[in-house]
Write a protein that binds this DNA or RNA. Structure first.
Length: 879
DNA sequence: CACCTAGTACTTTTT
DNA sequence: GTACTAGGTG
């Protein structure tokens, strides 16, 4: 990857003196036109050659958006004679910026290096690092990520003796603070506007949080943008310099900008008005992060002289895929009407698979991948159109869904890469090492110091940490000049009251280590500094003694060391700043490598802007996708739909959609997603067409076709008894409760009560299933968590309010074996139809041999899914 | 007082 | 699967 450039840097005198193409003769100019415009269609050309004034490019999915921006920049430089350092391009991820620079480099060579490119966050960080003093910001500020933010809030909660759950959950408080900040509110304004108890609570935290970050010399992600804007608004001299510097502005993924970002761009464009924004309202999927779709819908109102160029020819996908995408997104109300077209007529039908559970779904996906890539791996030379693994992606709504797929890929030996989830720079050991660097750079960064106390453990525990923080409090108040580190030093010398001699000793040797590292800083490279950090901190020794897991963590630290090597030409402070910024602002997608021979696992959000030949979208059930939090909110539902549109349009040739009727834990089953019903049926090929799951009501839930009919028939999903496609059989919370009550009264009558474990696994039953249930069973095992209560369960059954007790057992019961049959012999196969004396008819889902018995999991028509011991339960196999 | 272990509750999306 | 917590141990 290319060296991190400072996009706010002014060009060197040598670069400044470089001849521009202004002096080109007529024939050379024609040649340039030819080269830059030839690969473009009519609309793209218009976008590229319209260089003066505001320009809105409405770029549909796959319409050559990136191509337009790169060619436009090339055009500006080579045809219009604009100096490369006069051009700025803002992208959504650092990866996109790097890619754009690479493409530009191929077109125009070295001068591509002088074009400023980056994300809003990275550009603001650079500007603030350079000019932040003009608005009173410290030079060495630290960027706080979500984890750091949460630690700050948790500190408050500890001080106040409040729980980190419920309405004072850090992520909840931070979300509210972030939303207010993006609406341009200060903590004081929040307090003024607070009405409810919770709003007042949040506002108070917001005020404290802002003050604390100031003391820590820290900026969170929102602050980067906010302060970046303030810099342009309140430091006129600085603002004018940037306005003069960047004469041509480009903003990619404009539909995902928020109000602060919009204002920032407007400030920069104020003088010359040369602003080109590129976006697609149908792909706006970040409103929860403050993105304001009005930025794109109202562009023409805000810039009355704006040219608008729609790009509607798609170069990526087949017509089938585009029709499916259009079928879905056209159900949205507030959108600019448009329809993509392609020259790639027809194309394979879209495959749909209704799975029983996530494992089944994953297995099917893996099987299809194996078939599609068989020719590549050499197993089936006659396979049509072999797809290489890096042309395949599996998309899902939530990161948690990757697990089942991962397991299946692993056991099949298919190589894969996961984007997102826990990323490299969020791994514990990496954050630990980075915390040392942060502490060295910013002596006020209390959060970083508190992290290194425990990395590795060194006899400084929670009590000591609290006392140190308390000691730092009055010190700050007395004089701003005192840093947290200085308080730490005093404590190391035993000068802080309440710190035990033992802790004081530990602090003393920590302080020695820090000082030795400080002394090194001026004379070594960043990489060498990291080596010393590994040694002084004890991290190296710690992981060396930790076995295989430690080995992996150590390997990650070495990888971090390798990253640091790229900054070896910079001064230690500059290297430190840029490295720390890099680790903090590294995005999910930045870890994606399109060239390695691996299947990609990625969330729908992170997949935006990427493409693959063969795409799987998994987990298409009501409640998952669309997510349960969107079920009763029209606007959120439209965003889910756009997300689906984004997912579908990632596919170039082949698209597969799948869902699992049974999902994890007790939140019920998912009916097939409404989005499946919104795709014209003739485009779909149901893979398990002969399966009841494809058809009408099944024991597991409402089948694909039946759900489809439900949506098409206009059954309301907002009112009445539930979601169309809601499962008719097992697992509806309401039903299970009812069944339990019946079982309870039956048991009370028969007097044969037993107390099952709350996890539903009976240790040593002396009967084939529970006969009755003890009163203890009616004790709640938990309460409905806030996130599960959306007014409607995933199953379509009404859910209870948060806090409602959950009674055991809602989940399948496992009845462990007590008597042996013929050991090692399996009697039941998946799919067998069986009859049970009490539960009636059922279908075998899985069966597993244990030491003494066979455990058969059966889905019963009326009583849900149960796991029974074959030796005990009287099961009759039918047909 | 620090640290380890086992058990429990919790999972939207991310710069 | 992980992040937190409680409770035991050194």
């Amino acid at each position: 990857m290319n060296l991190p450039l400072d996009p706010t840097d002014d060009p060197s005198p040598a670069q400044r003196a470089a001849p521009t193409q202004n002096t080109l003769g007529e024939s050379a100019r024609t040649a340039v036109e030819e080269r830059i415009l030839a690969p473009l269609n009519e609309a793209q050309r218009r976008a590229v050659t319209t260089t003066a004034g505001p320009l809105l490019v409405l770029a549909g999915a796959g319409s050559g958006k990136t191509r337009v921006i790169t060619h436009r920049i090339a055009w500006l430089i080579q045809h219009e004679g604009v100096a490369p350092w006069k051009i700025l391009a803002v992208t959504f991820t650092n990866k996109a910026a790097a890619e754009m620079r690479d493409r530009l480099h191929e077109m125009i060579g070295e001068s591509a290096r002088d074009v400023a490119m980056g994300t809003f966050h990275s550009l603001c960080a650079r500007m603030l690092r350079r000019d932040g003093e003009a608005i009173g910001l410290p030079k060495g500020f630290t960027i706080y990520d979500a984890d750091d933010q949460a630690r700050v809030i948790k500190g408050f909660l500890k001080e106040d003796d409040l729980p980190a759950t419920g309405e004072t959950k850090p992520s909840l408080i931070l979300g509210a603070i972030s939303r207010a900040k993006n609406d341009g509110l200060t903590a004081e304004q929040m307090e003024d506007r607070a009405i409810t108890h919770h709003e007042r609570l949040v506002a108070r935290f917001a005020r404290r949080y802002a003050a604390e970050l100031k003391r820590l010399d820290a900026l969170d992600f929102d602050d980067l943008l906010l302060e970046g804007l303030r810099l342009l608004q309140e430091a006129p001299a600085v603002a004018d310099r940037y306005r003069a510097k960047w004469e041509y502005l480009h903003v990619d993924e404009y539909q995902d900008t928020n109000r602060i970002q919009y204002n920032w761009v407007r400030e920069l464009a104020a003088k010359h008005g040369n602003l080109c924004v590129v976006g697609d309202d149908d792909q706006s999927i970040y409103s929860w992060r403050g993105a304001d779709i009005r930025n794109i819908l109202d562009f023409e109102r805000d810039w009355p002289t704006a040219e608008v160029v729609p790009l509607e020819q798609n170069y990526r996908s087949t017509q089938t895929i585009l029709d499916a995408a259009h079928g879905v997104v056209s159900n949205n109300q507030g959108r600019k009407k448009k329809k993509l077209w392609t020259e790639l007529e027809g194309g394979d039908q879209i495959t749909v698979y209704g799975a029983f559970d996530p494992e089944d779904e994953a297995a099917w996906i893996v099987r299809r991948i194996e078939e599609a890539s068989a020719a590549v791996t050499g197993r089936r030379a006659d396979a049509p159109e072999p797809v290489s693994l890096n042309g395949i992606a599996i998309l899902y709504r939530t990161n948690a869904q990757s697990r089942a797929i991962e397991v299946a890929l692993k056991s099949a030996g298919v190589a894969y890469q996961i984007i997102g989830g826990i990323r490299f720079y969020e791994r514990r050991e990496v954050k630990d090492a980075v915390a040392w660097l942060r502490a060295l750079r910013n002596p006020r960064d209390r959060i970083a110091f508190e992290r290194i106390y425990d990395a590795p453990p060194r006899g400084i525990g929670e009590k000591t940490i609290r006392r140190l923080a308390a000691a730092a409090q009055p010190a700050y108040a007395a004089t701003e000049a005192i840093t947290y580190e200085q308080v730490l030093y005093s404590a190391g010398r035993g000068e802080v009251a309440g710190i035990t001699p033992r802790a004081s000793n530990a602090l003393g040797s920590l302080v020695d280590s820090i000082q030795r590292l400080r002394d090194l800083m001026s004379s070594v490279t960043l990489g060498e500094l990291l080596d010393s950090v590994f040694r002084e901190s004890g991290l190296r020794a710690f992981y060396a003694s930790e076995g295989p897991e430690g080995e992996e963590r150590w390997a990650n630290l070495l990888e971090l060391r390798g990253d640091a090597e790229r900054y070896k030409d910079l001064s230690t402070i500059d290297a430190l700043d840029q490295f720390l910024e890099f680790t903090a602002l590294q995005s999910d997608q930045d870890g994606f490598d399109a060239d390695v021979e691996r299947v990609t696992l990625i969330t729908l959000h992170a997949a935006k802007g990427l493409e693959w030949s063969m795409v799987f979208i998994s987990g298409l059930t009501e409640g998952l996708f669309p997510h349960s939090r969107a079920l009763d909110d029209q606007e959120q539902m439209e965003e889910e739909r756009r997300l689906c549109y984004v997912g579908i349009t990632r596919a170039k040739r082949r698209l597969s959609l799948s869902y699992a009727l049974r999902r994890g834990w007790g939140d019920g089953d998912g009916a097939p997603s409404r989005f499946l019903a919104e795709i014209p049926e003739e485009l779909l090929d149901v893979a398990n067409d002969d399966d009841p799951r494809a058809d009408g009501e099944t024991r597991f839930g409402r089948g694909f076709r039946s759900a489809r009919a439900g949506f098409a028939g206009g059954e309301s999903w907002r009112e009445g008894s539930g979601t169309p496609g809601a499962p008719s059989g097992a697992f509806r919370p309401g039903r299970d409760l009812e069944a339990r009550r019946r079982a309870y009264s039956a048991g009370a009558r028969s007097g044969s009560l037993r107390v099952p474990d709350t996890d539903g696994i009976d240790e040593a039953p002396d009967d084939d299933e529970f006969i009755g249930e003890a009163p203890e069973l009616m004790q709640p095992v938990g309460r409905i968590p806030p996130w599960a209560a959306t007014g409607r369960g995933a199953a379509g059954a009404p859910t209870q309010a948060p806090g409602t007790p959950i009674l055991p057992p809602l989940r399948p019961r496992t009845v462990a074996p007590t008597r042996a049959r013929i050991p090692g012999e399996r009697y039941f196969r998946d799919g067998d139809r069986v009859l049970h004396a009490t539960f009636g008819e059922g279908i075998v889902v899985t069966s597993k041999l244990t030491r003494h018995d066979e455990e058969v999991t059966i889905a019963f028509a009326g009583s849900g899914v149960k796991t029974l011991a074959a030796s005990i339960a009287n099961l009759e196999v039918q047909g």
